[in-house]
């Protein structure tokens, strides 16, 4: 059994000190790892990352913590500094990369990539026309390529999780205005997921979307944007690997409950 806590879109700014940490107090008792699905900061400033680092320090000390960047984290062009600040408290930011952690003998691979917009079949952009449109869609394809590369690195692990900021499916956008779907995700990401079939795919970004979805081939997708969750983070239990405690047992005994 592997327990995963996840949240996205915490949008930490200099005015956020002390607002996140109190709500993560019980996370180390409830999860084996913590994943943060982008939009870590409000404007992508290193000083905002410093605030976030302090908010996450205790959790990251207790459980392996990984993140991807979101669009907000690129606003100031200082995203690499954000990554470095977070690395200072052992929060590893993944982009086209994967990490593997062992939990009671079970290996868990986390493949991370921000992803991008572009749209979904029937309402997608094309790499055609003006250079700006080509660049938009090229970035979408390249972002999916980085997810592909990351997932390839964890092909042999017992449990495999994909972590993104943008959505791979329209399912978890339900509630958003249809007109903005192409800015919220891309089917290129779903294609990649279906090729690798991870156990779970997490994303954020769509604040008015919905929690649960599937790709065309049935990969389980969850939108963990904090406004969608309405709680500090979501916790998932996966009955995989070598542990002898089943999710059902753990939840029944309250081990992972409140």
């Amino acid at each position: 059994m592997i327990r995963v806590a996840a949240v996205g879109d915490v949008h930490v700014g200099r005015d956020s000190r002390g607002r996140l940490r109190p709500h993560l107090k019980h996370l180390p008792e409830r999860a084996d790892l913590f994943l943060v699905a982008g939009d870590l900061t409000r404007r992508g400033l290193p000083e905002e990352a410093e605030v976030l680092a302090e908010e996450l320090r205790e959790v990251a000390d207790a459980v392996p913590t990984f993140a991807v960047l979101g669009n907000h984290d690129f606003e100031s062009g200082r995203e690499q500094e954000v990554v470095e600040v977070l690395a200072g408290v052992d929060v590893q930011v993944l982009e086209g990369e994967a990490m593997v952690v062992a939990v009671d003998g079970t290996t868990v691979g986390i493949a991370g990539a921000k992803g991008f917009g572009g749209g979904f079949p029937g309402a997608s952009g094309s790499e055609f026309g003006e250079p700006e449109m080509k660049a938009f869609m090229r970035h979408s394809a390249e972002a999916a390529g980085r997810l592909d590369a990351a997932l390839a690195k964890i092909a042999g692990e017992d449990v495999r999780i994909a972590l993104m900021h943008y959505s791979p499916t329209e399912d978890t956008l339900d509630g958003e205005r249809l007109e903005i779907y192409p800015f919220l995700g891309s089917y290129f990401l779903a294609e990649v997921l279906d090729r690798h079939a991870p156990d779970l795919a997490l994303h954020g970004h769509a604040h008015a979307g919905s929690e649960k979805g599937l790709t065309a081939a049935g990969v389980c997708v969850r939108n963990v944007a904090q406004p969608v969750l309405g709680r500090a983070y979501a916790t998932f239990c996966l009955d995989r690997g070598r542990g002898d405690v089943a999710c059902e047992d753990a939840t029944a005994t309250g081990e992972t409950g409140a």
Partner: peptide, 14 residues
């Protein structure tokens, strides 16, 4: 102003 509480809900992923 949003304030998101820490809840103990757990979803079992099939």
């Amino acid at each position: 102003v949003s304030d998101y509480p820490e809840l103990g809900e757990v979803e079992a992923i099939p």
